[in-house]
Amino acid sequence: MKKIALITGATSGIGQATALKAAEAGFEIIITGRREDRLQQLAAEIRQKGSEVLSLCFDVRDAEAVKKAIENLDDKWKNIAVLVNNAGLAVGVSPLQEGILDDWERMIDTNVKGLLYVTRAVAPLMIQKNSGHIVNIASIAGKEVYPGGNVYCATKHAVDALSRAMRTDMLKHNIKVTNIAPGMVETEFSLVRYKGDAAAAKNVYKGMTPLTNEDIADTILFAITRPAHVCLNDIVIMPTAQANSRDVNREA
């Protein structure tokens, strides 16, 4: 019987790459996201790889929508073995004293509350089986802070702390928890952060080779395919050209 993996924020970037790689590895996939057209396109690609797929269109910020989507799964799809809490974003680069409240709320509601809503809905299903694996996509911003990062860094510090808390809470239920903290990954991340300014987004990666969606998806797949007695608690993954959140070796 194939294992089922639920991946949030699957309509682009790391989530999309993870869904495809997990399908290739033999998982059946539940994909979630806000963009129905992209979900359907991804679902078709997953089916081409020979895996069954269920797409759920909702916003992780909507607690009731999350609860309803998970409660309404049929018995087969409730047998979730892996949850990848990938949905998240950074918005804006203003210093704290000039921060935009809507930006703050989007980040807090998605990165922290959304992760909590989905985990709260899925974890009891894993506890019933006394097995499962929760993967939280954090960031190097959850280990450090940097200028303009303020609230985004705070949300990812929260993810880091929640991953450690989940690990202890889930321990007696035989559920693994893995926190993955990437450095610079070239996705839609910077485009969203700079609110559609493509030039500013491209400049983030100027003169260096960032990580790709596939690099992080490979890391997730490695973590979720370890033997039953092995749990990777915390993984920090960086481009070779990046030592930390501020030190980057860029070619002239």
Rank of each mutant, 00 (worst) to 15 (best):
M1K: 04
I4Q: 01
I4M: 03
A5V: 10
K21E: 07
E24R: 01
E28L: 06
E28G: 02
I29D: 09
I30A: 06
I31Y: 05
T32E: 03
R34A: 12
R35M: 01
Q41A: 15
Q41D: 14
A43E: 11
A44E: 08
G50F: 02
S51L: 04
S51V: 03
E52F: 04
A63F: 11
D74K: 05
K76P: 00
V82I: 15
L83N: 02
V84Q: 02
V91K: 08
G92S: 04
G92Q: 04
V93L: 06
S94N: 09
P95T: 07
P95Q: 07
L116C: 10
V118C: 01
T119K: 00
R120A: 05
N136C: 04
I137H: 05
P147Y: 13
G149D: 12
V151I: 14
A154S: 15
A158E: 12
D160Y: 00
L162F: 00
L162G: 00
L162T: 00
S163D: 04
R164H: 12
T168Y: 07
L171W: 02
K172N: 11
H173N: 10
T178C: 13
A181N: 15
G183V: 08
M184F: 13
F189S: 10
F189E: 12
F189M: 11
V192I: 15
V192H: 07
Y194M: 08
Y194F: 14
G196E: 10
D197Y: 15
A200N: 14
A201K: 12
N203T: 14
G207L: 12
M208W: 15
T212W: 04
T212Q: 09
N213V: 08
N213D: 13
E214R: 04
A217W: 04
D218G: 05
H229L: 14
L232Q: 14
D234P: 10
D234Q: 13
I237W: 05
P239R: 12
A241S: 11
A243K: 14
S245Q: 14
V248T: 13
E251Y: 11
E251T: 02
A252R: 06
